[in-house]
Simulated scan of single mutants.
Amino acid sequence: MTEMENREPLLTVKGLKQYFKVSSTYTVHAVENVSFQIYPGETYGLVGESGSGKSTIGRSIIRLYDPTAGEIMFDGMKIGGKISRADSQKLRTQMQMIFQDPMASLNPRKKVRDIVGEGLDIHHMYSSSEEREEKIANILQKVGLAPEHASRYPHQFSGGQRQRVGIARALIVNPKLIIADECISALDVSIQAQVVNLMKDIQQETGTAYLFIAHDLSMVKYISDRIGVLHLGHLLETGTTAEIFEHPVHPYTKSLLSAIPEPNPIVEKQRIAESYDYKTSGIDYNKGTDHLVSGTHYVKCTDEEFQRWI
């Protein structure tokens, strides 16, 4: 991690806030003051329960939502507020997203050839139709599909194959960062392993960085270099995979890890899941600040809570 720290981060998020006005009297605070960094070629896992704001963060970073407040720097570009047309063009090619539902994210009326090649068409990234077809065939092979699959429609594939099409669509413009928004949650366990292994192989080959959003802690542990734990829109704890899993500090992180079932039935019988209720915990996320535990391990809490937990 020392070598990584000496490099410039690819993505820097500082104080990100994302609010949604529901009515004249009520506003949902989906994301509240979230800050983290992603370095080139690494995978940053973002975990938390449903409704914690994980997907909202991903969509705010890629500008599907306009952030309410905060600063987002991507590859030297400031993309948190209004951006120029040139920066927008650069952002659309260098940052891509893999969506959760592989069927809903693919146009059912288009063939795979046109779905995957849409990025090439929009950004004029080929000089002839032959070059376009060659690029599509190469990227399909890279994600484990045959070139002849290009002439099929999404409904003719299995769930795992459809997700591979989604990965191919994201990869074809050679992005520096891919936001994977729970891209394996709708798949069978065996297919999840295939897709995650595919993503790791592609990362080693291309050096692409991932923001990996997921519920499955074991899968996040397998693929991530660093992990951020999110709850109620607040980033409570962040650090390397080993730091989070071996030395969790925040009570919410401890409760998440204690809920992981053990494959050994003898150990599983003795496992005790820790309970955590924010309302009765006495913790106020809005008063917490980042405290350095060790290395790159941070926990968000007050000074008193930090002394008590450490």
Rank of each mutant, 00 (worst) to 15 (best):
M1D: 09
T2V: 11
E5K: 13
N6Q: 15
R7V: 01
E8G: 03
P9K: 10
L16V: 01
K17F: 15
Q18D: 11
Y19P: 02
T25P: 00
T25N: 15
Y26E: 08
T27W: 05
A30S: 15
S35F: 04
Y39C: 04
Y39D: 06
Y39F: 15
G41Q: 05
L46F: 02
V47Y: 02
V47F: 01
G48L: 01
E49P: 09
T56Y: 05
I57N: 07
I62E: 05
L64Q: 10
D66Y: 00
T68Q: 12
T68K: 13
G70E: 15
M73I: 13
M73V: 11
K78Y: 03
K78Q: 14
I79F: 02
G81D: 14
R85K: 15
T93C: 09
M97S: 08
M97I: 15
D101G: 06
A104T: 13
A104C: 11
S105V: 01
S105Y: 04
L106P: 03
N107P: 06
N107K: 05
R113F: 13
D114M: 00
G117V: 02
E118Q: 12
I122F: 09
Y126M: 07
S127E: 12
E130Q: 14
E130P: 00
E130V: 07
E131D: 08
E133F: 00
A137F: 02
N138A: 13
N138M: 00
L140V: 01
S151A: 14
R152V: 01
Y153I: 02
F157V: 04
G159I: 00
G160S: 05
R162H: 11
R164K: 13
R164A: 10
V165T: 05
G166V: 08
L171S: 10
V173F: 00
I179K: 11
I184V: 15
Q194G: 04
M199R: 12
I202M: 05
G207N: 10
Y210D: 03
Y210W: 06
L211Q: 06
F212G: 00
I213T: 04
I213K: 04
A214H: 03
H215V: 00
H215Q: 14
D216R: 09
S218E: 00
V220N: 02
K221C: 02
K221V: 01
I223G: 01
S224M: 11
R226N: 13
R226K: 15
I227Q: 05
V229K: 02
L230G: 05
L230Y: 09
G233S: 10
H234N: 13
L235V: 04
L236I: 07
G239R: 06
T241V: 15
I244D: 03
F245S: 04
F245A: 03
H247G: 00
P248T: 07
P248M: 01
V249G: 01
V249C: 03
H250P: 04
Y252S: 12
Y252V: 02
Y252T: 04
S255K: 08
L257F: 08
L257K: 11
S258P: 03
I260P: 05
P261D: 08
E262S: 11
E262H: 08
P263D: 07
R271S: 12
Y285A: 14
Y285K: 10
N286G: 14
K287T: 05
G288V: 08
T289A: 14
D290Q: 14
L292G: 06
H297R: 14
Y298F: 11
E304I: 11
F306A: 10
Q307L: 15
Q307C: 12
W309K: 08
